[in-house]
Design a binder for these strands. Structure first.
Length: 830
DNA sequence: GTAGGGTTAG
């Protein structure tokens, strides 16, 4: 009984100040400190400075001296002064351990406000336990406050539990206010059962409900979308005249979420007649929502209402609506709104302007400029100018942008057309920026007008604009791409020496790439030496490109030494660059060197891939070193690599080359038929057809042809040629001819050697008429090969035989006379 | 403002 008396006294005295504090809290959002005497004020400052000072020792003498003077009022003040929740927490902890001092519900709440604001849920949980375990008596208001702190961080169940515990332990006799706080906390969740249970409890107590009870209930039903219940609560509140800005917001936001636009307006109207107005935040949320749903009329109507209610919209709201209008194609309204915004004193930011320029036409962009008020500050004018410049560049009107920029600079007013002249109200160096140059220079480069770009760049100094790394890089890249290496190098020098800018990896690589394209090995390596100083890695694609170019021209040795030089400089090329070099070596018949390079790489820990193996295997096979190739093949399998069709094709060719057709066929059977690997391809079959014919097995070649077609593989001209040549060489020119006919029907043009083989086969069988026919066909689709042609002599032999025979000699002479056989034959065959 | 470069049949 005594205990209850104590609590009663406590809250009887303190309820008033509690209520006052809460009121202030609601208005300002801050936990309000109790007033302390000036002595205490000094103490508070001392403690605050000790705790914020680093390094900090909680056992310092200074603190120990202060401890005896500690009171709850002082602690509360101190807690409200810290900006960091961590320090507040630390101080609270320190205070708890001082002898003779005990926290009360106000110091606990002070910490709760700090922790809740910082969303420290874990610490809030600990504080809840502390509150209960310390058996700290609480006023109903204090408990309510604590519960709201829990609610703010979504700790609804904890809030519910704390109320029970405080009640059960007799720490507090909660009143309606406490319960209302709890309801408010619960309404932030979807735990409707808890809410309804508490509500029932309250009615059981015989308490009269008020608007603070029903607002959370309304909120809960709205959250859950139980609109019938929500409407019922709303009506009750209306009947009791309990509606306010807050409840209106809840309802109106929900209605807009349900897309009930008409109802939103109806409700706002109705409320206005009762002098309840939507607050600024709700206006903003509603307008954003409407724009999102493309209800621009509704958004604009609300926007007007908002302004009439005396609110000044912020730029973000203008931004949203203007963008919405642009997207709907209502550019006129967007522009009007934009101008209205500018008039209302909001200075436009570049984000919104850039957005507008994506939608506006040239006329609208110009209108924007023309309506610039006199006396606009330089920076803003430049922003508008740059916008129009960007617009012109995007529209491909590069010349216009160029003329405009020069017009603003005032450099050549005579060449500036009058329309442009009137557009540019503000002229002079102050109205252009580095960005203006960047825009136009990039535009010129895109159009391939590199010289103009450089010219413009050189004029930047006149208007005191400093070039950036980006501008230098753009120019240097463009110059290198158009092979103007000297100018690019000049710019690089100027970049460092005059502008004091550091070239980037990109800058150097542009020049390195250009040197590589020029096949300037020495220059490239010199550049690499420079780059090494900057720790700029030369891009491997450029190195590979150079290697490939050199190899294609037979400069393999140079290519290899370039790669070695790169290594020397500390930049190790990758397997692709080396593969190119190995192929280059193979093409110049330096297979052993290629092998050596390959083994060196492996020795350095590099694991060559399938392509690298393929290059070597094919090289060895072409050189008929098939058993070595086969060893590599095995090695590759051991290394866990999967041979590709290319690998098999090369091996098949190799086996055929040395006449081991059986091994070739064995390879064929091993080619994976997995869907993603595709199985044998045209090249496989072509190689085999060629190999089988060469091995004197034309019948098997014919079977292979059928097999290929059965597999759905379509023969190429090379396949046809292999078949035709093969059959001819096997003494079966008749069949060869039928494949030739099919090939021609397919629209493919055989190479000359195919005809040579066929003609030779026909003539050796003395089929002179047919030989002549094929010769005529050959001449129909192409001219007779010239003297220096590889096949010239062979064909002349054929002709000689035809001329010697009386059945065909006159026809051949006729052909010669008509000039079909070229100029070289006339003397021989006469 | 920056990733695609190397392999097989005649």
């Amino acid at each position: 009984m005594r205990r209850y008396t104590h609590i009663f006294r406590l809250w009887f005295y303190e309820e008033c100040s509690d209520a006052l504090r809460l009121r202030r809290f609601i208005c300002t959002g801050d936990q309000v400190s109790p007033s302390v005497s000036s002595d205490s004020e000094q103490l508070v400052s001392n403690i605050v400075s000790i705790f914020t000072k680093k390094p900090f020792h909680r056992d310092s003498l200074e603190l120990r001296n202060l401890a005896p003077a500690l009171t709850t009022k002082v602690v509360e003040s101190v807690l409200n002064r810290f900006k960091s929740w961590k320090i507040a927490h630390e101080f609270f902890d320190w205070a708890s351990s001082q002898s003779g001092y005990m926290h009360n519900c106000y110091t606990i709440n002070a910490l709760a406000a700090v922790l809740s604001g910082a969303r420290r849920n874990a610490e809030m949980k600990t504080l809840s336990s502390y509150l209960v375990n310390s058996r700290c008596p609480m006023t109903p208001g204090a408990l309510g406050f604590f519960i709201r702190c829990l609610g703010n961080v979504g700790m609804v169940e904890e809030a519910d539990a704390v109320l029970n515990q405080a009640k059960d332990l007799g720490l507090c006799i909660p009143n309606k206010y406490t319960y209302n706080c709890l309801l408010q906390a619960i309404s932030r969740s979807n735990k409707v059962e808890i809410l309804e249970m508490r509500l029932k409890e309250m009615t059981d107590f015989g308490w009269e409900l008020d608007k603070f009870t029903l607002t959370p209930v309304l909120q809960m039903y709205c959250n859950l979308g139980r609109m019938k219940c929500a409407m019922r609560v709303f009506e009750i509140m209306g009947d009791q005249d309990w509606l306010d800005v807050h409840s209106l917001s809840i309802m109106v936001l929900r209605l807009s979420k349900l897309c009930l636009t008409d109802e939103v307006f109806e409700l706002i109207q109705k409320m206005e007649s009762r002098n309840i107005r939507v607050n600024e935040q709700t206006f903003c949320i509603l307008i954003h929502g409407f724009v999102k749903e493309s209800k621009l009329d509704a958004a604009l109507e609300l926007f007007d209402k908002m302004k009439r209610s005396g609110f000044t919209p912020e730029i973000s709201l203008y931004d949203t609506i203007i963008e919405g209008l642009c997207k709907k194609g209502q550019l006129k309204r967007a522009l009007d709104l934009y101008l209205e915004m500018r008039e209302s004193g909001i200075s436009p930011d570049s984000k919104l302007l850039i957005k507008l320029s994506n939608f506006f036409s040239e006329e609208q962009m110009i209108q924007l400029l023309e309506e610039l008020p006199e006396g606009m500050d330089t920076k803003t004018v430049t922003l508008y100018y740059n916008l129009l410049l960007t617009f012109y560049i995007k529209a491909g009107l590069t010349d216009k942008a160029h003329i405009m920029l020069r017009g603003i600079m005032g450099s050549d007013s005579n060449s500036c057309d009058t329309a442009m002249d009137s557009l540019i109200k503000f002229k002079g160096a102050g109205f252009v920026s580095t960005a203006s140059f960047n825009i136009v220079i990039s535009g010129l480069i895109q159009k391939g007008e590199v010289d103009s770009a450089v010219g413009l760049f050189l004029d930047m100094g006149q208007v005191h604009c400093r070039p950036t790394v980006e501008i230098y890089n753009n120019l240097i890249e463009a110059l290198c791409n158009s092979n103007k290496l000297d100018v690019a190098k000049d710019l690089l020098r100027e970049m460092e020496a005059t502008s004091g800018l550091s070239p980037t990896q990109f800058t150097h690589n542009c020049i390195f790439g250009c040197l590589c394209r020029r096949e300037d090995t020495i220059g490239a390596i010199d550049m690499v030496k420079v780059m090494r100083v900057y720790v700029h890695e030369p891009w491997i694609k450029h190195s590979s490109d150079l290697v490939k170019r050199l190899c294609n021209k037979g400069r393999v040795t140079e290519a290899c030494s370039f790669l070695a030089d790169l290594v020397e400089e500390g930049f190790v090329p990758d397997i692709v660059a080396y593969s190119t070099a190995m192929r280059g070596l193979i093409q110049t018949h330096k297979i052993d060197q290629a092998m050596e390079l390959f083994r060196d790489l492996q020795a350095q820990g590099c694991h060559p891939d399938v392509v690298a193996y393929n290059i070597l295997i094919s090289g060895l096979c072409k050189a008929k070193r098939v058993s070595e190739a086969d060893k590599l093949f095995e090695e590759m399998l051991e290394g866990g690599l999967f041979p590709s069709v290319v690998t098999y094709n090369s091996m098949i060719d190799g086996w055929c080359q040395i006449g081991d057709v059986d091994r070739a066929l064995l390879c064929l059977s091993k080619i994976s038929r997995k869907a993603q690997e595709g199985g044998p391809d045209v090249i496989t079959y072509t190689t085999l057809i060629d190999g089988l014919c060469n091995a004197g097995k034309p019948d098997e070649a014919l079977t292979m042809w059928d097999e290929m077609k059965r597999q759905g593989c379509v023969p190429h001209s090379i396949t046809f040629m292999a078949m035709i040549k093969g059959l001819s060489k096997s003494g079966r020119p008749e069949e060869a001819r039928s494949y030739l006919k099919e090939m021609l029907r397919e629209g493919m043009k055989p190479q000359i050697y195919v005809y040579v083989a066929l003609l030779e086969a026909l003539i050796s069988e003395q089929k002179l008429d047919e030989t002549f026919q094929v010769l005529r066909e050959m001449l129909e689709i192409g001219s007779f090969p010239e003297l220096k042609d590889k096949w010239h002599v062979a064909l002349r032999d054929v002709l000689a035989k035809l001329v010697q025979d009386e059945r065909t000699s006159s026809s051949i002479r006729a052909l010669v006379a008509e000039g079909h056989l070229g100029p070289h034959l006339s003397d021989t065959d006469r």
